[in-house]
Design a protein around this nucleic acid. Sequence first.
DNA 1: AAGGAGGGTTTTTTT
DNA 2: AACCCTCCTT
Length: 665
Amino acid sequence: MDPLAQLNPAQQEAVLTGAGPLLVLAGAGTGKTRVITFRIAELIRRGTPADRILSVTFTNKAAREMHQRATSLLGRSSATQPVICTFHALCVRILRQEITALGYPKHFSIYDRGDQESTARTTLREIQVSDQTLRPADLLHRISRWKTAGVPPERAADYVENDQDFLAAVAYRKYQAALRSSGAVDFDDLLLVTRQLFDEHPQILRKYQRSFEYIQIDEYQDTNAAQFYLISALVKPHHNLCVVGDDDQSIYGWRGAEVTHILNFQKQFPQAKVVRLQDNYRCTDEILQLANRLVRHNRGRHEKTLVAHKHNGRKIRFLEYEDEHQEAEQLVREIQHLNTELNVPAGHIAILFRTNEQPRPVEAQLRQHNVRYVLIGGQSFFDRREIRDILAYLKAIAFPNDEPSLLRIVNVPARGIGNSTMHKLIQRSVASGQSLWHAFDEAASQRAIPARAASSLQALKQTLESYRQRFRRRPSALHATLSDLISEIGYHSEIEKHYKSAEQQTARKAMLASLIDTVKDYCTRAGKPSLVTFLQDTSLVGRDDESDKEEQLSENAVKLMTLHSAKGLEFPHVYMIGMEEGLLPHRRSIIGSESAIAEERRLTYVGVTRAMDQLTLTRATGRMKWGKRRPSLPSRFLHEMQHEQPAVPAADQTGDSQDLAAHDG
DNA sequence: AAGGAGGGTTTTTTT
DNA sequence: AACCCTCCTT
C-alpha cells in the first residue's frame, strides 16, 4: 500500500513538492511533523542521499522524535541517516570542524546559563556596577537581545535607550572579551560565531551549502534573526527550503524570535509555493472553536480556518477554587478518579501552567496520593548542586581557561582558598589580560597570597592536570576516571558535611552515581568518546538529557509542564491551571506593550489546542505570593474565548503585519 | 577562612 | 516561603 494514502490532499501536496522554496502554513494539530517526516522519506525515495537532507527542529526532544519517526518510515532501506537537529546542535556540529579558522581553540567550551551568570557578575564587578543597579540577569537579557539582533559589542552603544542600557553596553564589551579569552561561547554565540565563520570564510560556507541539498525548518515562526541569516546563507545556491510553521503559535518573541520571517517568506522567495494545512485531527470541534475565538482577538495575523474532524466531544469546563492548594487538591482528586474509575492512563493527562512555581502544590498532592507524574523542564538533574559541582570539575579539567567552572570548584570542598585570595587573583588576571592560572603562578612566586591558599591552589592545579591526562588517556572509560576523581576530591564527605539526615545523604550520593551512569552510557553510545565532546553535548542538551530514562519511565505518568514546553505536544486530557490576570497574561506582559499581551494570548492558544478530548481550565480567586495571600482576577482570556469578539473596525482586522514584528520580549 | 545569623529580594517563558 | 547575599563571630 502506498503510505502517502494516509495523508490528506494538502499534506500530500506539501510532501510531494520537490525543489524550490515551500511555505507550509500549518495550524495546530494538522499533522506537520508527519508532513516533514514524509517529506524526508519522499526526497530520499527520489534519490537524494539521506545525509544531504537537513531538518532543523526547535527542541532536542522534537529532533529525537522526528528522527525516530523518519527512521521507522525509511526502514532499513537507507545507508545514511538524515540530519535532524536543533539550530544550536547544527552550529556545534559545524564549529567542531571549523572553529579554529576564527582563532578559537579547537576544544571550545559552551557556557550554560550558570556560567553566563557568573561571567556577568564578574564583569559587572569589574566595571564597578553593583548588581543592584544592573542585575546579572538583566545584563544577560540585554546582551542576548543585542546578539540575536546581530549587534556586536562595539556597536551596542548606538542602541542605548536608558542608563541601564548604557551600563549594559559597556559590560557587553567586557563580557564578550572574557568569553573570548577563555575560548568559550555562549548559546547565542553558537549562532553568531557560525555566522561569522560563513562571512569570513566563503569557502567553508560553500562546503556546507553543497553538503545540504534540502533544508527543512520546523516551527519557523520562532526563528530569530541569527537563525534566519544562517539558513538564508545555506540555501542561497538552490533555494530548496521548506519551512513549516504557524504564526498563531509564535511564543518566543521575548527571546528574539520574529514572526516577520514567516509572514514575509513569500517576499523573500517570490517563487515560493504555499500550502495550507487546515484540517485539524487533534481537537474536538468545541476546543477548536474556543481557540479560534480567542486568537481572533489578535491583530495582524494570517486568518486561518481550521476545520475540526472530531465532533461531539466532552464539554469544556471552567473551574474556580479558593486558592492554589484547593486547585491542586481537587485537580489531583479528579485525576485519581479518571485513573482508577474511568481507566484513563496517567500518561493521557497533562497539567499546563505559565510559571515554574505553579506546579509546586500540585506536585505535593500528586506525591501524597501516589500518582505517577513527570515534571518536564524545571529544576532537574543537571540543576542539582552536586551535579553542577562535579560538572564544573570536569569543565575545569577539559577547558583549563573556563573561569566560571574554576571559580565554582576552587573551594568546594573547602580547602582554605577564600574570597580575598580569589578576588586578588581575578584582579591580577583582569589587569594582565592573562588567565587565572597564570595570575596564580605570578602571585605565588611573588608571595602575594597566603601560603596556605597558595599550596592548596597548587595542589588543585596538579590534581586537575593529572586528571586531564587520565581522561585523555582512557577515553572509553571516562566513567571510571570520574569515579576516581569524585573520591579523590572527597566529595562524599562534602555531602555528609552539608546534609545531616541519612536520607538526604543517600539521595545526594545517588545523584553522583547516576551522573557516573550517564557518563558510562555516553561512553558506550558515542563512537569516539571524549570528555570535551561529552561536556559540549551535555551543555547543549542540558536538562532534557534525562528524558531518555524519563521517556520510558513516564510512558504512563501525568505530565506537568509550562505552556512553553507544551508546544508541539498533544494529550487527551489537558488541565490549564492558574487562568488568572497576572499569571496568564503574566504581570510582566501586562506592564509591557500590546504585543506582549498578544504573545500571551498566543500562548493560551497553544495551551488550549494541546487538548484532544477534554479541556479543563481552572483558576483560584486568591494565591500566596511572597508569603501573603493576594486576590486574583479571572484571566481576560477566559472572557475572550467564551464570547464572540465584538465588531472590530476593519482597519484593525487587517492590521499591518509589521505589528507583529514589534515584539519587545 | 569558615560557618551561622539576619536581612532583603524574588521567577515569565528556554535553546 | 525560599533563596541569596552580607556581615558577624570564631
